[in-house]
Design a protein around this nucleic acid. Sequence first.
DNA 1: TTTATTCTGGAATGATCATTCCAGTATTTT
DNA 2: AAAATACTGGAATGATCATTCCAGAATAAA
Lengths: 199, 199
Amino acid sequence: MARQQSQPRQDLLTSAMVSFWRHGYRGVSVGDLVRDTGVSRSSLYSDYAGKEALFCAVLDHYQTQVVTPLFGRVEAAGAGLPAIRDYLRAAIVGEAMPERGLRGCLVCTSWTQVDVGEAEVVARLQSHAARLSAGFTAALTHENTQRGAGLTPEALAALGHYTMVAAQGTWTYARFADGAEELHTAADALLDHLERALG
Amino acid sequence: MARQQSQPRQDLLTSAMVSFWRHGYRGVSVGDLVRDTGVSRSSLYSDYAGKEALFCAVLDHYQTQVVTPLFGRVEAAGAGLPAIRDYLRAAIVGEAMPERGLRGCLVCTSWTQVDVGEAEVVARLQSHAARLSAGFTAALTHENTQRGAGLTPEALAALGHYTMVAAQGTWTYARFADGAEELHTAADALLDHLERALG
DNA sequence: TTTATTCTGGAATGATCATTCCAGTATTTT
DNA sequence: AAAATACTGGAATGATCATTCCAGAATAAA
């Protein structure tokens, strides 16, 4: 059965995303993608310049399909500490997979797998980090204003950036963590810090 | 020039460690190792069963040559928050490489590169995480006692574990960070958290 | 010196991988 | 139905890689 070009192949990107998410950029071959997506090798190469270009499209897809639904609540106007708490908890629940353990985050998994020379990919990873850092900072700034905690913009930016780094540690560690409970403990410690800092 | 077996080849492991540290487990081929270590392919395979076995030896070497010198001060009897501060700062300074940017941590880089099937490697990675978690917890416990802060052993264990996760995030993020300053900011935020928690 | 032992260089092997190509089949358009 | 378009299966290519193997050089032991 041939497919239509008129419809964008969302399913292709989603299937590919799942594969990359599970085994990492280097751990998925084009042959694996053919098997997992059900799209022929020929079509893959007619739609994308190559594996790296496809992975870039997957990273963009990941932003809209995974990051935005989870992290959007932090980026929303009026979001504060509760939104950050919701994000962390929802993300941990979303990570849990009964069969294959924890997946971690696609960006965090890719972070140490791509080479500096793969500039298009690196740019997307850094863009993701900047997105989270900015989102956290905005929410913390709002919370700071609401509480009248009196933190400086510099301190709030540092705290937001740190929150991103700590979250990245959590999603990275998730790959070989014993279970979701371990992650909830780490997330609670991070939230406790933010709470105290804005105290 | 032939080498002697009687002398353990420390230089081989150190050279291999540097290569893996820089490019990651998957990013270094046996050919690269032959070039970087100066040891012939034949000798590599006569000393180690294969690439995975060599990498395990490198991970053990990393523990004694890199982790112990840096983290030993945290594990030492009587270590407290200052020891953790020293560790974080010294590690960031040690990470800085003028030419090729930041290296991150060998274990953190490997964390998302190895497959679940490579059990020997995974065991060493988890052992490293457990070592850091235990070291942080011990130092925090000592600090807690000295200050009479009154945290429960469970709370201290959770805080020590979280410190390990946050540090892992820092060393992972280091790979594509803009510079060491960014890492110092994150480390300061983590230290601020520990300070407040033991306040 | 003679005899083992240790190491090297490099070729060979077999597997995997990204990418290209094409003949043929299904689908859409006219 | 006929022509154009979109997709497929699978083979072919060329590169890379981990591992094995061996003839010979360097070193140590006798």
